[in-house]
């Protein structure tokens, strides 16, 4: 059988990547201290994935391994920062993250419904806080709040959303 053309390989890669993208991003996010660093690691991860992509491989398992190695490389550059996890914890999180992939898929599905249950103004605020380029100090200032008050509000909303997605998932399991 002839090897796939560049376009076929490209299409295969995109399909696999699209299926695993959020799970990979969650995994990377769990390993590094900030969302920005997670984005940076993801950029390197996807480049390595594309360069080394083999359509015959178990994509998700392989991609998690690549992501862990790329994240470790980034983390080692900042090894003195105490906010950076060491290799032992990274490996523990890697093992746990793989087992949680289906749970997290369900959480993401439930999130949209849980966001819909929030009052529109709160939903808008939480999404604005998560929009790239939003500065929390400026957002807080626009709302006449201190940044710390906004952070605390976001803490409460996130905890409520997490409880909601877990509750929704449990209800669907028992339905």
């Amino acid at each position: 059988m002839s090897p796939p053309s560049e376009h076929e390989r490209h299409a295969q890669f995109l399909r696999h990547y699209a299926e695993s993208e959020l799970a990979l991003h969650t995994f990377v996010r769990s390993l590094v201290p900030t969302r920005q660093m997670a984005s940076e690691v993801m950029q390197d991860v996807i480049l390595v994935l594309w360069e080394k992509f083999d359509a015959a491989a178990d994509f998700q398992g392989w991609a998690f391994g690549v992501a862990k190695n790329v994240a470790l490389r980034h983390l080692r550059r900042q090894a003195r920062d105490r906010h950076v996890f060491d290799d032992e914890l990274v490996n523990q999180l890697a093992d746990d993250a793989v087992t949680l992939v289906p749970v997290h898929d369900e959480h993401r599905e439930a999130l949209e419904r849980c966001l819909d249950k929030l009052p529109a103004s709160q939903r808008e605020l939480v999404l604005t806080a998560y929009t790239k380029g939003t500065r929390m100090d400026e957002l807080a200032s626009r709302r006449g709040q201190t940044p710390m008050a906004l952070y605390k509000w976001l803490h409460r909303i996130r905890q409520a959303l997490l409880e909601c997605v877990e509750r929704t998932r449990a209800q669907e399991e028992h339905a």
């Binding site: 991003h25 746990d96 993401r108 999404l127 996130r158």
Partner: peptide, 13 residues
């Protein structure tokens, strides 16, 4: 890990 998943999912939303 649940919180990290939420963080990424909110960013995606």
């Amino acid at each position: 890990l649940h919180y990290m998943n939420l963080d990424v999912a909110l960013e995606a939303q």
